[in-house]
Simulated assay, not measured.
Amino acid sequence: MCECRCPDETNQTRYRSAAGTTRLIRLGILGDPVDESLSPRIHACAFMHRSREGVYERHQTTIANVGFTLKRLQQSHLGLNVTAPLKTEVLDYCHGVSALAAQLGAANTLVAKKEGWWAENTDATGLLNVLGGAQSLRGQTVAVLGAGGAARAVVWALEGAGCEEIRIHCRSQRSFSILNDRSLTRKASLQWRPWGDVKDPVDLVINSTPLGRHEPLPIELRSPRIIDLNYRPHMTTELCRQSRSIGLIAQDGRALLLEQALLAQQLWFGDLPVGLRDAMTQPLMK
């Protein structure tokens, strides 16, 4: 039985196994805000598929309180997902950090170890999977909106996909310089472009900013394909609606959310049982 209770009542989504004899597994998401996250429902379906008793909780936490919250949850939780605006801040409170998370300066998945939290970044690998894998965009030109923490993972994924040119559209050249310094592989030409100047045709546009979720973006999109890293629980993002209205192929962040969730399950449990992907896809189709 899968119990999906209202966040206002219990702030958690729980699966109780029929036997009810195994130790309760606790997972959760850390961020601000977290009230619209679909992660609790996705991982509740994973518990059901694994026949494991578990609970996935929302932990709305400010930057000022993230250290205290992580210390409090370390003894009770197997793992955590991390969302904005805490992906960079959590690194200061982790005992170990993967090479990729260190390179990107951000983590979105934590695993509880005896010594403390272990930090990993599945944003980059997850997006590479969404794009189609290594060399799937060979020779293409991609415009990335934004130069924040999410854009670091986007650039890593685009380089892995074989992009020839990546245009970073942001308001500050300083933000671009920081992003450029994080791009250590130098597999693609990284260029700065002013925010809103997306008039030159590209093969793909990826929105890594929070904008476009509830409101249209006041920019001209000249690309056959749009990927918006944002998502809304029960409807498409405004950017996707805006793009589809002019005949573009648009995809919101649900596909990336699924890939991130599967990679997190692998880190937490050490395996991905047959059928788990299909089970975890169900909440994204409602």
Rank of each mutant, 00 (worst) to 15 (best):
S189H: 07
R244L: 02
L91G: 01
I42S: 03
S76K: 05
N207S: 14
R225K: 11
R5D: 05
G28S: 04
S98V: 01
Q191R: 11
R52V: 14
S177Y: 04
G28D: 09
R72G: 10
G79P: 04
L158T: 01
C45N: 14
D32S: 14
G148Q: 11
G270F: 10
V66H: 03
E259I: 09
V154S: 07
R152F: 12
G148I: 08
T83D: 07
Q75I: 11
A261V: 05
G126A: 06
L145Y: 11
A119K: 07
D92C: 02
R241I: 02
M48T: 09
M280R: 06
H214F: 14
S189Y: 03
P85T: 11
W192P: 00
V111A: 04
W268E: 08
A264K: 00
T83H: 11
P224T: 02
R193I: 14
A102M: 14
A107K: 05
R138I: 10
S172A: 12
L248M: 13
T88K: 02
Q135L: 12
K87Y: 01
Q103H: 09
Q251Y: 06
M48H: 10
D181L: 09
R222E: 13
C163H: 10
C240T: 09
A124K: 10
L27W: 07
A64E: 10
S175M: 03
A250D: 09
H43Q: 11
G132N: 11
D252C: 07
N121W: 00
I178E: 04
G160L: 05
A84G: 08
L262W: 09
R16Q: 14
D35E: 15
T61S: 06
P216Y: 08
D203M: 05
R222K: 15
V142I: 06
I25K: 01
